[in-house]
Every structure is written in structure tokens, then in C-alpha cells.
Amino acid sequence: MTDSYDQLPEKPRPQPSTENQPYWDGLREHRLLVQRCANCNKLRHYPRPMCDACYAMDYTWQEIDGRGTVHSWATSHHPFHHSFKREVPYVTVTADLESGVRLQAPLVGSDETALALGLRVIVDYADVDASLSLPCLRLES
């Protein structure tokens, strides 16, 4: 469906680097991958070169469980990036995943009135196009 009177700009896209490409590749396969320090096993997110616990620079990618709990949230009413104009109002949730890292992602399937700290959420995936999938979160039923 086209909307000729109001052409919106493209949404911002990640610009994957060699360091974080596996994270984005994982999302394409609907898997959540985070870095695991090859020396001390500490998980870290967002991807970066060094472990802040032992300073090792070698790491592997580990698939983690998509379940967690609500840490906080925000509801955007103003589309600061014009490309989100048709989505407002939309909710983004900060979630504590059971593996210990956090994830921020849009809430799907509920609105903000259903939210409270500590509620159980689970990661889901939204396919944007052939080369990009993004995480989202839904309340666990």
C-alpha cells in the first residue's frame, strides 16, 4: 500500500562491523547471540573488543535464552526520527534477560498499560527485509 501524500524517510539501519556482524546474522536466524569471553566466560552486550573483567580480547558467540523480565520502558509519542511517524505511540522495553545481559526492544502484542517492573517477557523477531531482522519483546502469557 502506498501513501503518496507523505513519503517517509527510511528507518535508521545498523551498520554492522566485523565485531558485531554475528549478532545481526543471529537475528536473521531468529537467534540471540552475545559475546562470551574466551578466558573468563563472562557474557557481554553490546558487542565490543575487550572483556572488562579480565581484559581478554578473544571471545566466542553464545546463543542465549530470550526470556527475561521488565526492567523499564518508555512510550514514544513524538516521532523524533520521522520514519517512525506511523508507529507512534509505541513502547520500547528494557528487559533483564536471564543470561544477565539487557536488551531494549519494541513491545509487541500489548500496550504500556499492561506493563510493570518484573513482568515476564520473551524475545521475538521482526523481519524487516531479506537482510535485516530486529528483536522485539512480548509479555509471556
Binding site: 528507518k11 535508521p12 539501519r13 545498523p14 551498520q15 558485531n20 553490546y46 518508555a74 514514544s76 526520527h81 517512525f84 508507529e87 509505541y90 520500547t92 531494549q104 526492544a105 519494541p106 535485516l132 530486529l134 528483536p135
Partner: peptide
Amino acid sequence: EFEMPLGT
């Protein structure tokens, strides 16, 4: 990289 594509 990780939040702006999601609408933040």
C-alpha cells in the same frame, strides 16, 4: 547501532 533502528 543497537537502539536507533528500534525507534530510540
